[in-house]
Structures are given as structure tokens and as C-alpha cells.
């Protein structure tokens, strides 16, 4: 009899423990996504500051600055992870492009405000890269859990599916570290 109770307890407890573990991993993915979202918002806030700072100097780059502003508006709208990735990569590319183009404007390069902003952008890009890496690590951990036996059974019953990775395009992985020292 005690053996039977033991087996029954095990049959109830094991799925509960597995389920709780899966929920923890799923929540970790959500938290990671949230922290990435905070960083994206931070970068999003930096765009108008950058445009305001550089537009006085970079008058021949109007198209570039307009596309940056337009893209910022698109980023603000709600998207699926895959679309967010594309927009995020484009925004990162454009920001890098503005910083590289600034090389041609010595007055801008010397501007205290621009240098401060550049530091803030670099910082945000690195924080964003860090939160992306955390998000992908959390997704990977979650995938391992939902695909391995026996937690795959519980995940299947609970309807837990795969999550999208947040992968950056290869060419935008490294943030260009442009030196503006004259």
C-alpha cells in the first residue's frame, strides 16, 4: 500500500515539478524579452536627440535623417519578433551610417553634445546586444526544456510551443566603434 501511494505521489508530483520548471523558463524568456524591449525603447528615445543634434551640421544628409525618423516611427508600432528583428537591424544600420557620415563634418565631430550622444548610443547598443544575448540564451534554455524527454510530454500537453530567436544580421553584429578624436 505505501508503495502504491508513493508511486501515485510520484506520478502527480513529477509532472507538477516539470510543469513549474517549464513555466519558470517561459517566464525567463518573457523577462528577457521585456529587458530587451526596455533597451529598444532607450535607443528609440535617442534617435530624435541624434537627429536634432546633427541636422544643423548635416544638411546634405536630409534623406538619411528622414529615413531614420521614418524608421523610428515604424519601430514604435507593435510587431512580431521576426519583423522587430528586421526593423531593429535597419535602425542599427542607419544609426551606424549617421555616425560614419559624421566623419565628414569636422564641426559636428568636435561638438560636445554629439560626442556625449555618441557615447550614449554606443552604450545603448552594447546594452541592447547584452539583452539580446540574454533573450536568446533564455529561448535556448526553454527550447531545450520543451524538446527533451520527459518535459516534452508536459510541454506538449500544456501547449507550449517554440519561441523566435532574436538574431541580428551578420553585418550588423559589431557596433562600429568610430573614433571622433581630431
Amino acid at each position: 500500500m505505501p508503495l502504491l501511494i508513493g508511486i501515485l505521489l510520484l506520478l502527480v508530483l513529477v509532472p507538477v515539478i516539470i510543469y513549474n520548471n517549464l513555466i519558470r523558463k517561459k517566464n525567463a524568456v518573457d523577462n528577457a524579452f521585456f529587458s530587451m524591449d526596455v533597451m529598444l525603447k532607450k535607443r528609440y528615445d535617442l534617435v530624435p536627440q541624434l537627429v536634432d543634434t546633427v541636422k544643423g551640421y548635416m544638411q546634405h544628409e536630409r534623406t538619411l535623417l528622414e529615413s531614420l525618423t521614418l524608421l523610428r516611427q515604424q519601430v514604435a508600432e507593435k510587431h512580431a519578433v521576426n519583423d522587430s528583428v528586421k526593423l531593429d537591424n535597419q535602425l542599427q544600420n542607419l544609426l551606424a551610417q549617421v555616425q560614419v557620415t559624421a566623419e565628414n563634418y569636422p564641426d559636428l565631430k568636435a561638438s560636445e553634445n554629439f560626442l556625449r550622444l555618441q557615447g550614449a548610443i554606443n552604450e545603448t547598443e552594447e546594452q541592447l546586444a547584452a539583452s539580446r544575448r540574454y533573450y536568446n540564451a533564455a529561448v535556448n534554455d526553454y527550447h531545450n526544456a520543451i524538446q527533451s524527454f520527459p518535459s516534452s510530454l508536459v510541454a506538449g500537453l500544456a501547449g507550449m510551443g517554440r519561441k523566435d530567436y532574436f538574431s541580428t544580421a551578420e553585418e550588423t553584429k559589431a557596433v562600429p566603434s568610430v573614433s571622433f578624436k581630431s
Partner: peptide, 10 residues
């Protein structure tokens, strides 16, 4: 802090 650790350890 998982994110901060990755921010430091690039």
C-alpha cells in the same frame, strides 16, 4: 543581473 553580466562580458 543576467543582462548586465553580458553587457560587461561582451
Amino acid at each position: 543581473d543576467q543582462v548586465e553580466a553580458r553587457y560587461i562580458l561582451t
